[in-house]
């Protein structure tokens, strides 16, 4: 063979021999480098080593129990060093016989936004002026009006004019054109009611359907989770979600050490990295241990309920049996596990 083997041939492609030689060299170098980093016991490089190991780990769903435990150990080590305190990463699977359901009393909600802030306290979202992420958004909706004097002829359909309950130009009743950034002196306001929205934990989640790397999936207890390590940041899920439930870490998350919640779950509130999507997980680190979510606990008017849909005596089942209940955008066949109700 001539020396020209290493050159690009006439068609512009690299010769097979040259490709194999170079590929072999790079592979050997990278593997030996990775092996060296993984086995290096120096504490100063521990975080870097852990990061390397994280790059090589599999999709969480495909890991064996041992691999999951290794991944969790690595994270606990890294987080504890990063945040200067003992951080636990839980890997509890779904509890048998439990399907989580959530109910929110839209009649009681006063729009105080404490749920949104409590969620941030619990779930280690990014905060501060550079990047603030909240998983819950509270919409302020105007109460509709109906006035006989408004029955003009400007409505739809043309020529008929009178449209009881509003027309194409005058919405009456509830309109889903809420305010996200309302700032009244006090809540609740007389002419408004409030509609908090968050991940609905759909039974047929559009976000799961579109994820090209299958890093987001629905666990048997109904919680849609994300393995942040496998998220490639394509944001397809954000576009697919009809409930505006997902958020994206455009920048490096800002999470002060003293505010970091050290009780975390691998699929939930463990600190995220730049370039991954995140969303409500029904406080998976709490609910899989039997405790209510942070938003349920903080609501000052008790408008939020969470329970086991498979337990006939649970509060969520009582709500479904006795209250007027609706779900958002049922026309999309997402089958949300988040219910709104009225007394």
């Amino acid at each position: 063979m001539s020396k020209d083997d290493s050159k690009i041939d006439e068609t512009g492609s690299v010769s097979r021999r040259d490709f194999l030689r170079k590929a072999g060299t790079y592979t050997a170098a990278s593997l030996s480098g990775a092996a060296m980093l993984l086995s290096d016991p120096k504490p100063a490089q521990a975080t870097q080593n852990v990061t390397w190991a994280e790059h090589f780990q599999k999709n969480y769903r495909l890991m064996t129990e041992e691999e999951k435990q290794e991944a969790i150990d690595r994270l606990e080590k890294r987080y504890s060093e990063e945040f200067g305190k003992t951080v636990t990463v839980d890997g509890s699977p779904a509890i048998d016989g439990v399907l989580f359901g959530y109910a929110l009393n839209i009649q009681k909600c006063i729009g105080c936004r404490r749920c949104a802030k409590a969620c941030v306290q619990e779930n280690n979202q990014s905060r501060g002026p550079e990047q603030e992420i909240e998983w819950i958004r509270v919409l302020r909706l105007e109460k509709g009006e109906f006035d006989v004097n408004d029955r003009d002829n400007a409505g739809y359909p043309e020529g008929f004019g009178v449209q009881v309950g509003g027309n194409a130009y005058k919405p009456a009743g509830v309109v889903l054109e809420g305010q996200h950034y309302y700032t009244p002196e006090q809540v609740p306001e007389k002419d408004a009611f409030y509609m908090p929205m968050q991940c609905m934990q759909c039974e047929k989640p559009p976000c799961v359907k579109v994820c090209p790397v299958r890093t987001t999936y629905r666990d048997p207890d109904g919680i849609v989770v994300i393995d942040y390590n496998w998220c490639i940041g394509c944001r397809m899920c954000i576009g697919a979600c009809p409930y505006w439930a997902r958020r994206f870490n455009w920048g490096e998350p800002n999470l002060p050490n003293e505010q970091m919640n050290p009780v975390t779950h691998y699929l939930g509130n463990r600190p995220r990295m730049k370039g991954v999507a995140e969303k409500c997980t029904f406080c998976i680190q709490r609910t899989r241990k039997g405790r209510w979510t942070a938003c349920v606990e903080v609501c000052p008017v008790g408008a939020r309920k969470l329970g086991n849909l498979l337990d006939p005596e649970s509060d969520i089942r009582k709500v479904l049996q006795t209250k007027k209940v609706f779900r958002l955008r049922t026309d999309l066949n997402t089958y949300p596990k988040f219910f709104y109700f009225m007394d």
Binding site: K108, I110, D152, K170, Y182, T183, P184, Q186, V187
Partner: peptide
């Protein structure tokens, strides 16, 4: 049924959005 409370601060505006006046427009003709 409940006394009025001071609400928590509004979420941060998206970058590039100077204010939220657009959503305070009254519905009407």
């Amino acid at each position: 049924g409940f006394a009025q409370l001071y609400p928590e601060p509004a979420p941060m505006l998206p970058k590039g959005m100077p204010n939220a006046d657009h959503e305070r427009v009254k519905h009407g003709p």
